[in-house]
Design a binder for these strands. Structure first.
Lengths: 206, 206
DNA sequence: CATTGTGAACGGGTTCACAGCA
DNA sequence: TGCTGTGAACCCGTTCACAATG
């Protein structure tokens, strides 16, 4: 187990480090340091050093960190050295957007299947994918050994679909439905609800 | 100023409370209490009482909280009693999804304008909106007195567009572009990048 | 000599536990 | 009696400051 006693909040920051580092790589930067990383992220340099030191000693005194090495190391830590297959459930606008999105490739994921229960959508083509019937979800997802899902169905259907995904062997769900899902504790769940973030900001407005 | 010394992390939880309370209202629940709320949210009852008590005394000993009253109170605190107008910049799949989304109405927001710089999209209809030319963004947004924006343009265009939004008088930006925006400190910025959350989960997989 | 890695100090958010009240 | 509101205790993440080092 890599899961020793590393705070979840530290884990949550690592993907952001990786994101910025991959940008740095595009900018042809070969080395960086905790000060520069911190400035780009709005985080203190000490925090970044402390976070990284939880997993080993990746830097060189006087020099900083190798961008390439740190990228590779973070990919190993975050378990995204290969591409995880993703199933998208819900072929509405949001499902379309995710199925078309080109940004997954270099960051450890690839959409593999798209499902919906609407007869008008089943069989339709979305980019490289044919929308499949949710009725077949459990069998198809299990057979394909997919463990990661993105949920873009209406709130009223989200709980039921989530349970089916778990039955199909999915252990990580990113839900766009604005409700709290009730699932076994061993299932990873994350939420995206833009309104929560909008309301967070309006608190500070005016 | 409502901004006394309330921790930002507390503010971030309030929208979640509001979300669950609005569900409770749909379920015809008239009162609730910190225990029930906490169970639904995966938060301790003490935390919820502490958070709410930062803003006043909203509960009744022995009874709990009035769902309606708490909803109204939170809407006042979060500054979402009326609907904020939102400008969507980027009329791709994601922009479509946001323009069509019916969930803003009851939660304090309404999409009011949609922009893109792609000639093939400008003039097209998306639901009730006609896609406008980004070249006119600053004037149009300022004239309409819109202060909240959602950014769904490619990463390469995000910084430039964000700066234009600020010039137009926008003070809160929800960005879907996977880069850190560099903006004045008085501008509220929030990010949505599904890959960050996926990578957070894969850390714990296997 | 610039920058890392880290123990220690610090700060602040969370939990505890109970008085207070409907 | 049941549940809130809250001071105090606790816990844990962040910052500090410096020895270590390429």
């Amino acid at each position: 187990m890599e899961t020793k006693k590393i705070p979840d909040i530290v884990v949550a920051r690592l993907p952001r480090y990786l994101q910025v580092l991959q940008h740095m790589k595009q900018e042809k930067l070969v080395t960086t340091n905790s000060k520069v990383l911190g400035d780009r992220l709005g985080i203190s340099a000490a925090q970044i050093r402390k976070d990284l030191s939880q997993f080993g000693e990746f830097g060189k005194q006087g020099t900083g960190y190798s961008v390439d090495f740190l990228i590779n190391t973070l990919r190993v830590i975050l378990n995204v050295t290969d591409a995880w297959k993703i199933v998208v459930v819900g072929a509405g606008d949001l499902g379309h957007a995710l199925a078309h999105y080109q940004g997954f490739t270099n960051r450890g994921f690839q959409v593999s299947m798209v499902f919906d229960n609407d007869p008008r959508l089943i069989g339709k083509q979305i980019g490289a994918f044919t929308v499949q019937d949710t009725a077949d979800l459990i069998d198809k997802v299990r057979a394909a050994e997919i463990h990661v899902a993105m949920l873009t169905v209406p709130a009223s259907a989200a709980q039921k679909v989530a349970e089916e995904l778990v039955k199909a062997g999915v252990t990580a769900i990113l839900s766009y439905a604005p409700i709290v899902l009730n699932l076994p504790h061993n299932i990873q769940v994350q939420y995206i609800d833009p309104i929560l973030q909008l309301q967070h900001m309006t608190y500070y407005l005016e």
